[in-house]
Nucleic acid binder design. Structure first.
Lengths: 146, 146
DNA sequence: CCGTATCCATTCCGATACTG
DNA sequence: CAGTATCGGAATGGATACGG
């Protein structure tokens, strides 16, 4: 039957998946962070079929992750650039990337601090008193209990 | 035609998507973090069809995200628990969750420190000197340049 | 309880051809 | 270049029935 939509789901993870639960969409966002802006650039670097790319780009634009802007050269074409919301996906991409690197396969890229060009520490959570917490130190509870 | 496999992709993001590029898998992992362990628990909380759940659980086990352990009560059933690799997905889930929360829709859950039950600070990157960095403060560069 | 086995509708993906 | 149109095959999702 029809695939269930997650738009109305109360869980923010589920709702996010409506946008990035799809493989091509994530890869397109990754390319966007890598500086790709044009239809043919995405097409070539991802090797995705045009019709699929068209649909995905449209979806990402509709969701506010990408936006179409007029071509810089004043040409007839437009480009796809990340919105503020789309740029917020950076940490998501980095989290996915670091997870993938940690499990076999060597790192091809490393995340560095723009100021001193030195690698940054992997992301982490911090308690209110400054302690650093591992995954096992935290849990998810209803807002009412916090 | 056949859907392309991402297992051999050189990009760690793409490879990770082989495991978590699928909506149900992400939701299952989310439930696992929420303490769900048994087939019927996942089934009920997600409302997913049994056959699909079976396939997804098998895939997650095959990928080393979950593992089957004998039932605690010594019963005939087993349970699905997150492996070390699976627990590494915590930051990914949290990144996705926070992105979803930041874009409309109020939070239903909050992440708290197990020790003092107080909310933890959102995830962040930290430079080598302890400064906290936002997404805009970092960039991805080839390993050779770092 | 924990699956397995079918069945069917829907969706998706890739290829190709075509257009302005 | 940037799509649109169409097509066939594959995968997916859901329902249901059945079994140890």
């Amino acid at each position: 039957m029809k695939r269930r939509s997650l738009e109305k789901d109360t869980c923010p993870v589920a709702r996010s998946l409506e946008a990035i639960g799809d493989t091509w969409s994530v890869l397109i966002v990754r390319e966007a962070f890598a500086g790709k802006r044009r239809f043919c650039e995405f097409e070539k670097s991802l090797g995705v079929a045009k019709n699929i790319l068209t649909v995905r780009l449209r979806k990402l634009v509709a969701l506010g992750v990408l936006e179409q802007v007029p071509a810089p050269g004043g040409g007839v074409h437009h480009e796809y650039v990340l919105t503020e919301k789309g740029r917020g996906l950076y940490v998501v991409l980095m989290a996915i990337r670091q997870w993938g690197e940690g499990c076999g396969g060597e790192a091809k890229y490393v995340l560095v601090d723009r100021r001193d060009r030195r690698p940054v520490k992997p992301l982490a959570f911090h308690a209110h008193d400054g302690r650093e917490l591992g995954a096992g130190d935290m849990e998810l509870v209803p807002v009412s209990e916090a």
